[in-house]
Design a protein around this nucleic acid. Structure first.
Length: 278
DNA sequence: CACCAGACCTGTCCGC
DNA sequence: TGCGGACAGGTCTGGT
């Protein structure tokens, strides 16, 4: 469910709720969601520690704790982190419950249980492989048109899977990648090293634009996504192509198409996004 | 290196 | 109503 704008939305709320709170106890309802260390050691590292701050890197949520540990959550497809001011009754998909010192609880719920939770100490960074190899994020100082130009020229691969590769650019997922390619007028099968300087500038602008809009709208909710208050986002009301196959394009009227690229569905407008043979 | 299929999981929807 | 298949905001592994 969550791409960078959804994770950012969650982190902004969590920061206000969690900063300075102490985790009194953690209830591990599904131990296999904890990837490092063991569930027992995880509880020992977390319990009794205060949350110093809440940070985000790409789609990872990072809670720095007293005692030198960092609690890391990746929501993958259906993970949710919801803050309950009052102690909640356990719901069907709840997997971890962090009881806080003010009587509130932070609940990690995950329908498909694909999410990954870690508690790292210094020197254990390699336990979260994906966090080591992230490219720059949209809206960051490092993400410049020149950077995009260079990595696109250095590779020969389809642009759609490239945008989903977190070591290429960090934070995009299937929704925002499709939307960015639409706004830039680039067909998802185009190859990175075939893009013109003009197209790369358009793509750079489009990526920043969709991510900023997603954050402004509090994320995109298709089914599972909820923010830290358990509410939906609204960016699903502002999409041009994602899951719109069969509908007329809002810009040119041609029918939006869907195809599978790199094992993921890609949605695009054949009128606005041309040049698939390049 | 680029690209696949498959794995990890549960739930929903659609066609028969 | 039931059953099977396709599919879902993600990422990793192992093969060609």
């Amino acid at each position: 469910m969550p791409e960078m704008p959804e994770v950012e939305t969650i982190c902004r709320s969590l920061e206000t709720y969690l900063t300075g709170r102490r985790i009194d106890r953690v209830e591990v309802l599904l131990p296999r969601q904890i990837k490092w260390p063991s569930a027992e050691e995880f509880a020992a590292r977390v319990e009794g520690e205060k949350i110093l701050n809440v940070k985000r890197r790409a789609k990872y949520i990072l809670l720095e704790l007293t005692g030198g540990s960092t609690l890391i959550v990746h929501l993958r497809m259906t993970g949710r982190l919801v803050y309950h001011a009052d102690a909640p009754t356990t719901a069907k998909h709840d997997r971890l419950i962090f009881r806080l010192d003010n009587g509130a609880a932070l609940v990690y719920a995950d329908t498909r249980t694909l999410g990954a939770i870690y508690c790292l100490r210094l020197g254990e960074e390699s336990r979260v492989k994906g966090l080591q190899t992230l490219g720059p994020e949209p809206l960051s100082a490092e993400f410049t048109p020149e950077f995009l130009k260079n990595i696109c020229a250095a590779k020969h691969r389809k642009i759609k899977p490239a945008l989903l590769d977190q070591s290429f650019i960090a934070g995009l997922g299937n929704i925002y990648a499709d939307e960015a390619l639409f706004l830039a007028g680039i067909h998802p099968l185009r190859t990175t090293d075939s893009l013109t300087a003009r197209e790369i500038e358009e793509l750079h602008r489009a990526v920043n634009e969709v991510i900023a809009a997603g954050i402004k709208d509090g994320g995109t909710t298709f089914r599972d996504y909820q923010n830290a208050e358990g509410q939906k986002g609204s960016h699903q009301d502002h999409l041009f192509v994602y899951q719109k196959d069969g509908e007329p394009c809002q810009k040119c009227g041609q029918t939006i198409e869907r195809m599978v690229i790199g094992g993921r569905s890609a949605h695009f407008c054949p009128g606005c996004q041309r040049g698939e043979t390049l």
